[in-house]
């Protein structure tokens, strides 16, 4: 490549005009209110879909392990045992069901992709916009089911969809059922 002599640029016609223009922008903005968010004093308003942290509705979990298997980072650890409920009626069968012992999510590995929430067939996992869970030690980022259950209280209701959107599957089923009745 040809060597460029230093300081040989073609100079603009009126030197300093561009600088003054820039200063005018600065001046105009100086007279306006700043856009800075005063975070610790004023908390941000986050949209309901914000992927802050994963909350667990423990009661809904059936230990099907779908979330742990589908997780691309393998950051969900589940432990459970089987319990048998004796038959309540004469000649009935004993019922066995899974009991959740541990449900840990390691947020130092989590990629916040929401696949676990999508695959959960019983709506046990939810996103919440809560984000203040920084820790000093990386090991403390693994949160257990009690902590995840606490976050459940902060889960916002999902936003209403755009009126161009397809109606929810449940609504469509209901509408058809009503039509069939009449």
């Amino acid at each position: 490549m040809a060597e460029r002599p230093i300081g040989s640029e073609n100079q603009p016609a009126r030197y300093g005009a561009g600088l003054l223009k820039g200063l005018a922008v600065t001046w105009r903005n100086l007279t306006r209110r700043s856009v800075t968010a005063q975070y610790p004093d004023v908390r941000p308003e986050l949209p309901p879909r914000s992927r802050g942290v994963i909350a667990l509705q423990e009661e809904n979990c059936t230990v099907c392990m779908l979330c742990a298997r589908e997780c691309p980072a393998w950051c969900i650890y589940i432990d459970s045992h089987k319990e048998t409920t004796p038959a309540t009626t004469e000649g009935g069968r004993d019922r066995s069901h899974n009991v959740l012992d541990a449900f840990d999510i390691d947020f130092s590995l989590c990629m916040y992709c929401s696949i676990c929430i999508e695959v959960c067939p019983f709506d046990a996992l939810h996103w919440t916009p809560e984000f203040e869970y920084a820790e000093f030690d990386i090991r403390d980022l693994t949160h257990d089911k009690d902590r995840l259950r606490e976050w459940m209280w902060t889960v916002p209701p999902p936003p209403a969809l755009d009126h161009h959107a397809e109606a929810a599957k449940e609504l469509e089923v209901t509408r058809r059922a009503v039509q069939d009745d009449t």
Partner: peptide, 13 residues
């Protein structure tokens, strides 16, 4: 504003 601030700036050019 971004354009005025930097694009015409002689030093930047």
């Amino acid at each position: 504003q971004i354009e005025d601030l930097i694009f015409g700036n002689e030093i930047f050019q």
